[in-house]
Design a protein around this nucleic acid. Structure first.
Lengths: 319, 319
DNA sequence: ACTGCATGTACCTGTAGCGCT
DNA sequence: CAGCGCTACAGGTACATGCAG
């Protein structure tokens, strides 16, 4: 049924068919203003006839831009990262960019390996969408090499102070602060803050916004959060959780013990609204984050500072 | 991208430093057996000295292989697709391949657009991990074009009978059959089968394995499944659901009406085990599926037929 | 003539810079 | 200057050839 045989058309085929040179075809594609209407039309007809699509590999070799962006996520199987990847893919598509996916599994050595490999891969930009600590010297060195190779680098939050690396202007502390305030208004003054890795920048940011909260490290898993929740001191009267799986794990563990503490989740994902119970969140929509990351990565290095993104409190069943 | 003469060495720099020709350096990298031990060592030393990494764009242009595989998913924000993407990324990494992510949003026209673009993108393979109908003539034509361009194509299940497109040897009907049998043993003989899109191959496969079940189309969303569940006839005594969000939506809707029907979910994802209630599944682990897809896509076209993957019943709280 | 190893050169497909009309 | 073409690349790999033993 599906047959093979013909080969794909090159720019030369189009040029011959339209009776022009390769250069002219190239111009029709890249600078149409500089081509006369007549040739424009003939070339475009030839392009359509032959179903010509420029070979991005060849283009990349000559121009130095591949139209590819690397997306580095901590763990793509987590609901939030899935939603974020979707947003990034959509925003990238809108700008004619492709997205290469790298799942880090929260591993620092893996991050380092990937960063070392990327300059040779010919990507135009790197989006680091992990909340893990990436300040190790070897990682900094790898990042520096990427920047030397003129690859734009963007992080999802302020991971370290370095002007060369753009960061989305979103402070997780604003979210945890909002959560603490909302809980306080409801008379809850002793929240626990459940984070995956206490040493991670995300955890430190969240803790900064919730200085009164009891910081608890629970790993990123359901079970870890469940165990941590069961060991929460009696005086803890509410919970702020970093990720949805952790929130679910903690909630189920507490419910199993008959403890019904209000809980606020610090990330937004469609699932949070639809699981039972649905989770109250303070967060930024993944769509917003993804779009902003892609915008930053495709921007010239020293552009105006990114706009501040403020998290929003969405009340649902857990608080 | 990579600027010349500064930080990034080319194969010519290595060749000069080692006192050999470019060809020899190339061979050291690609066919080390064909190089004498002495030169091998000298060239490798030069490579290390200059921290040389081959430019994959240039390599791709000449060799026609880029080491990139396109992963087309129906909706990456769905938990199952996230887990699958993770598995695919891991398996690809193990074979030295990169993964370009395309989110289709269950749109046929989007699939068509992507397939039309891929031959020019220089990908070596395409993994179609959607369960949607892809048999439209225009899509077939686009697929044919990909195959003509010597791009390997793999689907996650039998989407149509075509030898040129490899498919994972997994029959969803085996899963739904298993589900029906398990329910029957428990005295449940009138299950409803909740699918996202009744016209999709997945739905048809599942229906084939569960001919006695009432087929209900619910869209892929929580809410759609909830509405569909509320309208289930009284005689329905159990539910088989295609996706986790649908299972959650249906379960919550039924619970809201005090109806407590046993439910079996036909896809596996970590979340299924950890939400409350945890969902009984008949499925194949995403890791297995992902690994198999990558294996098939990196195989020569007419290799031996893929091994049969059999779904497994995992009992949890919903049945 | 056959082997083992290295070299030379023609590509792969576009785009940049400059030149011509 | 507008409109288009020529040619030299970009950085590798395929293939044919060269040259010892």
């Amino acid at each position: 049924m599906i047959s093979r045989g013909e080969t794909t058309a090159t720019i030369l085929d189009v040029a011959r068919r339209a009776g022009v040179s390769r250069t002219t075809v190239s111009r029709v594609l890249n600078e149409p203003d500089r081509v006369s209407p007549g040739t424009l039309q003939r070339v475009r007809a030839a392009v359509a006839d032959l179903k010509y699509a420029p070979n991005t590999v060849a283009r990349g070799l000559r121009s130095g831009r591949t139209g590819l962006v690397a997306l580095l996520v901590g763990d793509i199987s987590q609901p939030f990262h899935g939603a974020l990847a979707q947003a990034v893919a959509a925003a990238a598509e809108a700008r004619g960019l492709g997205v290469i996916l790298y799942d880090l599994g929260h591993s620092r050595t893996r991050l380092q390996d990937v960063l070392n490999k990327l300059p040779g891969q010919g990507v135009d930009g790197i989006i680091i969408a992990t909340a893990d600590d990436i300040s190790a010297p070897k990682i900094r060195a790898a990042l520096a090499h990427c920047l030397e190779s003129h690859i734009a680098v963007v992080t999802g939050m302020e991971l370290f102070d370095d002007d060369a690396v753009a960061a989305v202007n979103f402070d997780p502390a604003a979210g945890s602060r909002l959560a603490v305030e909302a809980l306080a208004e409801a008379g809850k003054h002793a929240p626990a803050l459940l984070v995956g890795d206490a040493a991670s920048p995300l955890a430190r940011h969240l803790a900064r916004g919730a200085p009164t909260a009891l910081l608890v490290e629970a790993g990123y898993s359901f079970d870890g959060a469940g165990r941590a929740a069961r060991e929460l001191p009696r005086e803890v009267d509410s919970v702020i959780a970093a990720t949805l799986p952790m929130a679910i794990g903690a909630w189920n563990a507490l419910a199993g013990e008959g403890r019904d503490l209000p809980l606020i989740l610090c990330e937004d994902t469609p699932l949070a609204a639809h699981v039972r119970p649905s989770f109250t969140t303070v967060a930024i929509a993944p769509e917003t984050l993804g779009a902003e990351m892609v915008r930053l990565v495709s921007l010239p290095a020293q552009a105006d500072p990114p706009p501040v993104l403020n998290p929003e409190l969405v009340r649902r069943e857990t608080f």
